[in-house]
Amino acid sequence: MKGYLKPLILILVFLAILIPFASEAPDGLERVVETFGIEEHEPLWNGLMPDYTLPAISNSYASTFLAGVFGTFLVLAMSYIMGIAITKKEAKPHE
């Protein structure tokens, strides 16, 4: 567990510092969709945290940061489980 602490703190500090500077402008694909006036349908599934915000929290920085923390840990946990599944246990060397 110790090995995870330092990189995780770095990732969360990285998020905490950069979230206020993240661009609100549409990304490449969203821009193309807007340019040609394509109507976006109301999505079937809005997710629990649409647009990386927690609907219950009104402060937008805190809301986005907490959504980011939540997502980071979810990805960490799921990819850890997958990591166990796709890797082989090393053979113990005889001493």
Partner: peptide, 22 residues
Amino acid sequence: SRSLTPILAVSSAFVFAAQMIN
């Protein structure tokens, strides 16, 4: 081998966080 697991988990988490920063 199993030693990849921590790096796999942490690097995926980093990519998720980095994708939030446009």
